[in-house]
Design a binder for these strands. Structure first.
Lengths: 189, 189, 189, 189
DNA sequence: AATGAATGAGGATTCATTCAT
DNA sequence: GATGAATGAATCCTCATTCAT
């Protein structure tokens, strides 16, 4: 078996292990050793690939946010023109990213963003993209698309936060946000 | 100067210092030494009064949640019967508790709650109380008070979360939540 | 009630508490605070009376060795001339000093003596006195009183040591040492 | 120099350093740092290999007791059938284990056994083995081999204890115990 | 590529001791 | 006489990181 091409696999394994470990611990207080062990390699190798703990965390963040983007994009791709908003909401609660571990990690990344400028930048990108998607989807369906987008975005985050406190269990999350959306659009008439 | 009866003062100073330090660092990774220094005493004394780091954190959490409760309660006390909902919302963004440090600490306490059962208990109490206040305030003003309360609560938390990412700066927060409330109630007719 | 004359009582209470605490913990790793608490006073007062932890320990040692001396002396006082040896042995296992706490403390004082010259001095005094008592008691009853005394003394200490390992429980201790004594004296004929 | 396979060496060095340090200090109050320094490594490495201070102590105890067992066994192996008792006694005072440091450490391990169940277990094993060896060696040579074994065992421990108080210097120790044995066996006739 | 070896720095916690009242 | 207040020093232990192989 060729040992070539191990690097991408190793990196992916470390990123996945990071999310799982943060999710399991419910905290950023995870050691590189724990992450590496979960990924089946030595901590020295983790350093070798990523350079340091901070970069491992950032890679994990990028992974989660990328996954989220993909979910929303795929939902939008197959959405009827008048159903874009619903598609975004459903994509936000896709089970790909709506796992307890991911939710916990996501919350912790908000914390990380308070210290780490790069982490904050990543989160802002995500927020901006979500916002722009929402504005676009609300255009013509409510009086003030910008304000509406802010409300929906905050509602999504708020729902995630509640889920984080309840071990990731939150049935009816998408339905609740859809309801808010309906109310906003109904208020137009 | 009397050297007696210092305990309450010291405890209060430590609690305040804890919130400030967590806020300043944006993380629970604050050392007892840092907290104690900010509070003007040795770390040994902090341990003497609280027993350990965990208890210091919990005391700080209790303090923030208590302060929040007081703000809401005082807003409710002076509210006209039909303005209870607006009072809760305004109380939630009272400048007493809506400081950058408190917002950051609040976010970090959500994280703490993922590991620490006592912290989770405190947050659940706060959520339950807020929820019950909201249901009460929505009764007769919207079709489904329970669902409405969930929406408002999530919206408040979502707005806080956004504020946490933006260094606590979020003007128009209360107005936005009021808007959601109006939409929910308008949807009744 | 006069507060006069508290000092002797306090000192005695601290000495007793020290022995008990060392016995209970099975270690010299007892804090002044624990001792003082057991004696019903503040650690500051313990320091006030004794000057420091080392002196508290030494006072406790003196107390145990003095108690032992008294037990042996009283046994000797009421012993028939030909029963002096048996009296010493019985006195060594008098229930006054043969309590689990005292045995444990005694072992720990041997340890203390390895570091603390004053503690070593106290133990040597005890050993010399015991030795001289034994030599005197063996005179005329065995060939080599000096050698016999060394044997009996070592046997007593060995028995104590075994008791220390078995939570102070050692029935038949005195009988065993008496047996050794008989053998030694029998060997004379 | 190969950097591989260091663990056994490091562990052995730490065990030896532990005995030496306890012997030098005459106390279990030795820090991991002191032990590690004496063994020529960082305290972190000591923790890495043993997991904690308690395990370092236990390993040192096991080492001493194992050494003692080996000394006795080797003495027994080359003993004439009628000289088993004398062999055990001589083995107990073999200069391999009868060093001042080892004697001091041995005493301290008795103290450790009062707190630590595993330490107590190790000592009990040693006592049981010694006892069984002695009973076997006394069979047919004295009236009550069990009682005789208890006497010899206590005598050995008592002699060790005296040595501990005298900086490990005790010439004539083996001779004294041999004398007791002779007396016991002579008492049979 | 991969890892065991190794460490320096740092943090929670404990405790003897001092001091002001 | 008696104590709560207060702290500096010390200790165990953890961890990110580096290095030699």
């Amino acid at each position: 078996m060729p040992r070539i091409g191990q690097e991408p696999k190793r990196r992916a394994a470390l990123v996945a292990a990071t999310v799982e470990e943060i999710g399991a611990k419910g905290s950023l207080d995870v050691t590189v050793g724990q992450i590496a062990k979960r990924a089946g390699m030595s901590s020295a190798l983790a350093h070798h690939y990523f350079g340091g703990k901070a970069q491992i965390f950032l890679a994990a963040m990028r992974h989660i946010l990328t996954q989220y983007s993909l979910d929303v994009r795929s939902a939008l791709a197959s959405a009827a023109p008048g159903q874009r908003l619903e598609a975004i909401i459903d994509g936000s609660f896709d089970e790909n990213c709506f796992t307890p571990a991911a939710i916990s990690a996501w919350l912790n990344f908000y914390v990380l963003a308070q210290r780490d400028e790069e982490a904050a930048r990543l989160l802002r990108i995500y927020q901006r993209r979500l916002n722009s998607n929402l504005v676009h989807a609300l255009r013509g369906r409510c009086n003030d698309p910008a304000a509406g987008a802010a409300v929906i975005a905050a509602q999504i985050d708020g729902v995630y936060l509640r889920a984080a406190l309840n071990n990731g269990d939150m049935t009816g999350a998408a339905a609740q946000v859809r309801g808010v959306a309906r109310a906003l659009m109904g208020a137009r008439a």
